[in-house]
Simulated scan of single mutants.
Amino acid sequence: MCGGLLLGSGASALNVRVLVASAPQLTVRVAAPAPAPGGLSVPGAPAAAPLPAQAWTVGVTGAQLTLNGQTTGSATLYLPPSAGSVVDIAGKTYRGGVQLRAEGGAVQGINVVDLEDYLRGVVPAEMPASWPAAAVQAQAVIARTYVTARINPATPFDTCATDACQVYGGVAAEKPQSDAAVAATRAQVVAFGGKAASTFFSSDNGGFTASSAEVWGKDLPYLTAKADPFSAGGPRARWQLEVPLGRVQEAAGNAGVRVGALKSVTVTRVSESGRPLEITFVGATGSGKLTGASAGGFVRALGAPATRVTLAGLNPLVLSGSGSGHGVGLSQYGALGLANAGYSHLHVLGFYYPGTQLATLTGRAGAGDALMAVAALPVLPLEQVWAAAQLAARPGSVQ
């Protein structure tokens, strides 16, 4: 590890800054046997009392960080990444370096890591590395695209390590198969209009992709509703949920429905993808409706794994559904089905993000000239997809 902890901040081109920990106190360890001359030190400390090279306890006093109990006089510390460097932050090992920030009485641990090394800890955390190469390669490209669109030097960090962003497990998550998928797709991203596309994905769309407009009220031309015959083999391809009336009443109230004691809850309008666009509530004091994204939010509030559902009864309210997740963009089980049918990762991407292009990163991520278009992604005619799905479903096909 070259260098020590430095006052300041910053990340170089194609580095990603990932918030991996936040606590009143963090332990940071590095692999270097000793700090470089003039490196790790606490401002104002005697020159004869260097800090340990292997482990630092980082705390916060007021708006300043402390190192092993001594005030640094700064709100930030930065250990830059170098070739092959690793760092432990709060007990987990990550490639690259670390930036530490005092924020709201806590220490933020931000892993500063090369984009491709970052993906090595993301892809197997989001999709089984043992799946066919085409599926894992597609996941690598959309993960790279997702974070490329979020790199912003003006913010304290670019992304987080949980499913609120995309899951990042660091070195412990890495697998040879997913490493190979990251390497095989190096620098590849999905682009639209010269920018990184919004590559949303979910586990299983239940046989029909949802549009971004119906789920979030944001209409993107490449995130549309269409049949997906490959996304039908997941563990939640079909499910049923029974919800007691009391919980239904509570969820309706939380959504702003005020109709008194409920007498019926019915889906009165559905989207093209078969998801509720309007749910009507009849109660003792009147009736009310939830529409658009609010209708889907009510379904999720009942504990449903997805919103492609039908409703029946009232006490309990029976939800019969298919799939898992929001259903927008790539379906991971659909990607598995397409890969098993022999399609490449480019076909997978072209199917789930029609009208987009394959591009490569050429400059500083987040900059306007960072992408260079390579070619339009292939679009599969739906008839061809259905035929391939039927073939893949025959006895003896690879699953």
Rank of each mutant, 00 (worst) to 15 (best):
residue 63 A to Y: 09
residue 63 A to W: 09
residue 64 Q to T: 14
residue 65 L to C: 04
residue 66 T to N: 06
residue 67 L to I: 12
residue 68 N to E: 10
residue 70 Q to N: 03
residue 71 T to G: 07
residue 72 T to S: 09
residue 72 T to K: 01
residue 73 G to P: 07
residue 73 G to M: 10
residue 74 S to Y: 13
residue 76 T to P: 06
residue 77 L to C: 05
residue 78 Y to T: 11
residue 78 Y to H: 09
residue 78 Y to E: 12
residue 80 P to T: 14
residue 81 P to E: 07
residue 82 S to L: 13
residue 82 S to K: 11
residue 83 A to T: 14
residue 83 A to D: 14
residue 84 G to R: 14
residue 84 G to D: 15
residue 84 G to A: 07
residue 86 V to C: 08
residue 87 V to K: 07
residue 88 D to G: 05
residue 88 D to C: 13
residue 89 I to R: 10
residue 89 I to F: 10
residue 90 A to E: 15
residue 91 G to R: 13
residue 91 G to T: 15
residue 91 G to H: 13
residue 93 T to Y: 15
residue 93 T to S: 13
residue 94 Y to G: 06
residue 95 R to V: 15
residue 95 R to L: 12
residue 96 G to F: 15
residue 96 G to K: 09
residue 96 G to P: 14
residue 97 G to D: 10
residue 97 G to W: 15
residue 98 V to G: 02
residue 99 Q to G: 11
residue 100 L to I: 15
residue 101 R to G: 03
residue 103 E to C: 10
residue 103 E to D: 13
residue 103 E to P: 02
residue 104 G to C: 10
residue 104 G to F: 10
residue 105 G to K: 15
residue 107 V to N: 10
residue 107 V to D: 09
residue 107 V to T: 09
residue 108 Q to L: 14
residue 109 G to A: 11
residue 110 I to W: 11
residue 110 I to E: 00
residue 110 I to Q: 06
residue 111 N to V: 13
residue 111 N to T: 12
residue 112 V to E: 13
residue 112 V to K: 07
residue 114 D to N: 12
residue 115 L to H: 02
residue 115 L to W: 01
residue 116 E to N: 08
residue 117 D to A: 06
residue 119 L to F: 08
residue 120 R to F: 03
residue 120 R to L: 12
residue 121 G to N: 02
residue 122 V to Q: 05
residue 122 V to N: 01
residue 122 V to K: 07
residue 126 E to P: 05
residue 127 M to P: 02
residue 128 P to V: 06
residue 129 A to R: 01
residue 129 A to F: 05
residue 132 P to M: 01
residue 133 A to M: 04
residue 135 A to T: 07
residue 135 A to C: 03
residue 136 V to C: 03
residue 137 Q to W: 08
residue 139 Q to C: 00
residue 140 A to Q: 03
residue 141 V to S: 00
residue 142 I to Q: 03
residue 143 A to P: 06
residue 144 R to G: 00
residue 144 R to H: 00
residue 145 T to L: 08
residue 145 T to G: 01
residue 145 T to S: 05
residue 145 T to C: 04
residue 146 Y to C: 00
residue 147 V to H: 02
residue 148 T to P: 05
residue 148 T to H: 07
residue 149 A to L: 05
residue 149 A to M: 07
residue 150 R to K: 08
residue 150 R to C: 01
residue 150 R to D: 02
residue 150 R to L: 04
residue 152 N to C: 00
residue 153 P to L: 05
residue 153 P to T: 04
residue 154 A to C: 00
residue 154 A to M: 02
residue 155 T to H: 08
residue 157 F to D: 04
residue 157 F to W: 12
residue 161 A to I: 06
residue 163 D to R: 04
residue 164 A to M: 11
residue 165 C to V: 06
residue 165 C to H: 10
residue 166 Q to H: 11
residue 168 Y to K: 01
residue 168 Y to R: 03
residue 170 G to V: 03
residue 170 G to D: 13
residue 172 A to R: 14
residue 172 A to Q: 11
residue 172 A to F: 12
residue 173 A to R: 01
residue 174 E to I: 14
residue 174 E to H: 05
residue 175 K to R: 15
residue 175 K to P: 08
